[in-house]
Computed example of a mutant assay.
Amino acid sequence: MSTCGPKMKMDPTLHRDKKPSWIKVRLPNNPAFWSTKSLITDLKLVTVCEEAQCPNRWECWGQGTATFMIAGDKCTRACGFCAVKTARPDALESDEPDRVAEATRRMNLRHVVITAVARDDMKDGGAEHFQKTIEAVRAANPGIIIEVLVPDFNDRDWALSMVMDARPHIFNHNLETVERLTPLVRSRAKYQRSLTVLKKAKAMANGNVSTKSGMMLGLGERHDEILRSMDDLLEHDVTVLTLGQYLRPTPKHLPVVDYVTPEKFDEYKAIALEKGFRHVASGPLVRSSYHAADFRPELDVLEAIESDLRAAKGLEIGPEHLQIPAPKDGMIQAIA
């Protein structure tokens, strides 16, 4: 495993092999799990749920949701935390956007998350493929909330603008860790560049997009560094934050330095909300896409996006035309 940037070492004696009692994975016991798995197999789709060994995949698939990973299953980066394969990627599949769109239609999704491996082998980093997938999903499933979880596209503005021109409702790019640990944890990525990408995405949509980022805890970060990262994200116009426990995929990946207690995650959530984040998901098994639909983008964001899309087609729009999903029970209280 290789990383870029200055060489950094962690004390291996700090690593804990035995997981605490609160790290529990729920096995499938719902017919919807097998239905979702069958559909994904039938359409020859890749999910980050499986590739990244997400601990929640049994639960999410059991609820009929999945996070689709486009542009292949081989990443050009070798991050110290990630279970996705690092290898020379295959060529893009031109029909993949339509297959993802068909999956959202069959699953009757109201909220979809689309992510991708880092494609540094391509000039646009896979941005056009994101654009085509967003457009195909919207055409097949009007009214769906579209969330993208993207790589940094090496901070190429023209590539980022291709994604934003497709008007996703939620733009997610993970900071992953605090600034000090970034060279160790994230291959080729840069802390400041990730912040810049988030801010640019918001600006490219004239503010009409919800921006989201997430961090893993338990890699050796300090309390003050976590708070500093929260402030940095807020300063770069991020409104949604996820915090979860890092779990070591294999012995070749970075060790777990500490298992953060559920109480500590609750404390960080309270701090983040007090600082000004609009929505925070914080817990040991929280991941970027976990219960993603629990967050409902701001109404003005939805209205602006739908209005712009209809205007581009020469259609007039009024509030009565908006296909805006109603919030779940208790959602307003959770977001407030």
Rank of each mutant, 00 (worst) to 15 (best):
R106W: 11
T115W: 07
R88D: 13
G126M: 04
D90E: 14
A87W: 09
I114A: 04
R99H: 00
V84E: 09
T86H: 03
T86C: 12
T86E: 10
M122T: 04
Q131P: 02
V117L: 00
E128P: 02
R106F: 11
S94W: 11
A83K: 01
E93K: 15
S94E: 15
A101T: 01
V112H: 01
E128F: 12
A78L: 07
A101I: 08
A78T: 12
V84Y: 08
H129A: 00
T115Q: 09
T115D: 06
A118S: 15
H111E: 03
A116T: 01
T76D: 08
R77L: 06
A78E: 11
A101D: 10
F81S: 06
D124R: 04
L92V: 03
Q131G: 03
E93Q: 15
A87L: 09
R99Y: 00
C79L: 07
A127W: 02
C82T: 01
V113K: 06
R88I: 13
S94I: 14
R88W: 08
Q131Y: 07
R105W: 08
P97L: 01
H129Q: 09
R77N: 02
K123V: 13
T104Q: 04
C75T: 03
I114Q: 00
E93W: 08
V117W: 05
Q131S: 15
N108E: 15
V117Q: 03
M107E: 08
A103V: 09
P97K: 08
E96N: 08
I114N: 07
F81W: 05
R110L: 07
S94K: 14
T76V: 00
A87E: 13
K85G: 03
F130N: 11
R105L: 11
R99A: 06
K123L: 15
T86G: 03
C82E: 05
A87R: 08
N108G: 13
N108I: 08
L92F: 12
C82I: 06
A127G: 06
C75P: 11
A118M: 12
A116R: 02
V84Q: 01
A118Y: 09
T115P: 04
